[in-house]
């Protein structure tokens, strides 16, 4: 990967934008086969002391890079803007074309945050969606940016209290399309549960579910609630707040046939997200999915008590992969998140 770099201290947005334009122009003039990516802008607001960690996560997002990433680094006491603009590219071979990505890193102070739109807006590429990710809070800055943005990337697992996290997501979704990394951590589980009940002879069993247990890392309760909320919304359960009960957080929802026990249990696990899911039906059938090496370990008990286990293949995407998926999802629209979020709010522990 090659890079062209510009840097300036005590700079301003116009100078940064002009520098980017010049860098792109010069590189294109030097090699006409290089064209700038024009998919989406990503604005990231981070605390200076955690900048390296966030930069690493963005790096590990794999091939899902925004076209122009504007990393706003907040440093206590800073009053002036310093910026580094980078255009990165791989020199294309033969008659192939190459794509250039742009990164801007702006060092700014807390006093700049309320006026962040006036700093960021001139630097964004017009006519393409803008995504904002603020992993260290800075909610005032995010709120100030809301009129500018199309997509809000957030992680409901980042907040200690899922009730607060979901209220935040609810507030943001009134202004922008929300991509929630906590929701994306549930994707393989949702796909597998959907697949399990997809055969016509299994579909009626969805009405027979009487217990759902979701196991999760301690810091990932929001993911667990979103998975429970998804099932609840898809199956039209009426849920109510869960309570701490018998060593787990549990409660009851109601479906066509009666009550459904919904329970969340924490599990020892290094990776954020879910550790397992068990769905049990009234006739004694149950399906359990457990995170394992190379995919999910599935075990099924039939109504007559027979048990089977098998492996559902899939590589772990890791947190870098989840973030990359979040960037990719900014171009898509998932109609099931909002109903799942609403149902998850109903289930949030009282």
């Amino acid at each position: 990967m090659s890079e062209d770099i510009w840097a300036e201290q005590d700079t301003n947005p116009d100078a940064i934008e002009a520098a980017l334009r010049e860098l792109l122009h010069e590189r294109h003039a030097a090699n006409e086969a290089l064209a700038p990516a024009r998919v989406l802008n990503l604005v990231v607001i981070v605390d200076r002391e955690w900048k390296g960690e966030i930069a690493n996560r963005l790096e590990r997002a794999g091939r899902y890079h925004a076209s122009r990433t504007v990393l706003c680094t907040v440093e206590t006491g800073r009053t002036k803007l310093d910026a580094v603009a980078t255009v990165s590219y791989q020199e294309p071979q033969g008659s192939a074309l190459g794509v250039m990505h742009e990164n801007v890193e702006i060092d700014l102070g807390p006093s700049h945050l309320r006026a962040l739109p006036t700093i960021v807006d001139p630097i964004l590429i017009g006519e393409i969606p803008t995504v904002v990710w603020s992993p260290h809070g800075h909610q005032d800055a995010v709120d100030a940016l809301l009129p500018l943005i199309d997509v809000m990337l957030l992680d409901s697992d980042d907040m200690d209290d899922p009730t607060e996290a979901f209220a935040r997501a609810e507030h943001l979704r009134e202004h922008a399309y929300v991509v929630d990394l906590a929701w994306l951590r549930t994707t393989p589980w949702r796909e597998r549960l959907a697949a399990t009940f997809d055969l016509p002879e299994r579909l009626p069993a969805l009405r027979e579910i009487h217990e759902l247990e979701v196991r999760h890392r301690e810091t990932s309760m929001a993911s667990a609630l979103l998975l429970a909320g998804w099932l609840s919304s898809r199956l039209q359960w009426a849920g109510s707040h869960l309570l701490l009960w018998d060593g787990r957080i549990a409660g009851q929802a109601h479906n066509f046939n009666g009550d459904v026990v919904v329970a969340l249990r924490t599990a020892e696990q290094e990776a954020p997200g879910l550790a397992g899911v068990t769905v049990s039906c009234t006739d004694g059938r149950s399906l359990s999915l457990q995170r394992g090496e190379g995919g999910l370990d599935a075990s099924e008990r039939t109504a007559d008590g027979a048990e089977r286990t098998w492996k559902i293949l899939g590589a772990s995407r890791g947190e870098g992969g989840i973030l990359g998926e979040g960037v990719r999802q900014a171009l898509l629209r998932d109609p099931t998140y909002v109903p799942a979020l609403d149902a998850a709010r109903d289930l949030c522990p009282a």
Binding site: R190, E191, A194, A195, D198, L203, L231, R234, T336
Partner: peptide, 16 residues
């Protein structure tokens, strides 16, 4: 048959 309510919104549809 009725459609699978869990499949809606999934990018990858289930395969038998």
């Amino acid at each position: 048959t009725d459609p699978n309510p869990l499949s809606q919104g999934l990018e990858r549809l289930p395969v038998a």
